[in-house]
């Protein structure tokens, strides 16, 4: 059987793959959400498959439309003393630190 070129990359995204991507993305998904996502992602990737129609071996990838070399700035401190305001945005603050769940037993 000849496998059509268009299906070469895109195998249907199964629940196992969804679980793997969700782990990489640090987004928890339950079974119900995983199934919904699998359906959505499959229809989106089916749409994206169109790109395989084009041969691109000799094309140089475009990484930036801004044809400019990145400029450097001198290393000067310009910010104000805003420690308190920054810590105020923390979901759980302890005066001088950002607090996270215990990581060392």
């Amino acid at each position: 059987m000849v496998v059509c070129d268009i299906f070469k990359y895109h195998m249907s995204i199964d629940l196992k793959t969804i679980k793997h991507i969700s782990k990489l993305s640090r987004i928890s998904v339950d079974e119900q959400k995983a199934e919904k996502l699998a359906g959505d992602l499959n229809s989106i990737f089916k749409f994206i498959e169109k790109l395989n129609e084009l041969k691109t071996e000799n094309v140089v990838p475009l990484t930036s439309v801004a044809e400019t070399t990145l400029k450097l700035r001198s290393d000067e401190i310009k910010s104000k003393d805003i420690r308190k305001q920054i810590l105020k945005n923390s979901p759980q603050d302890n005066e001088d630190y950002f607090v996270v769940p215990k990581v060392i037993e």
Partner: peptide, 29 residues
Amino acid sequence: QRRIMIGTYVLSSGYYDAYYLKAQKIRKL
């Protein structure tokens, strides 16, 4: 969440060339 998942997938090991690099090339075209 959908878009983060798509993005993570197309950048993940084994798929980068097939999706992300391919897209950058077509962006050039």
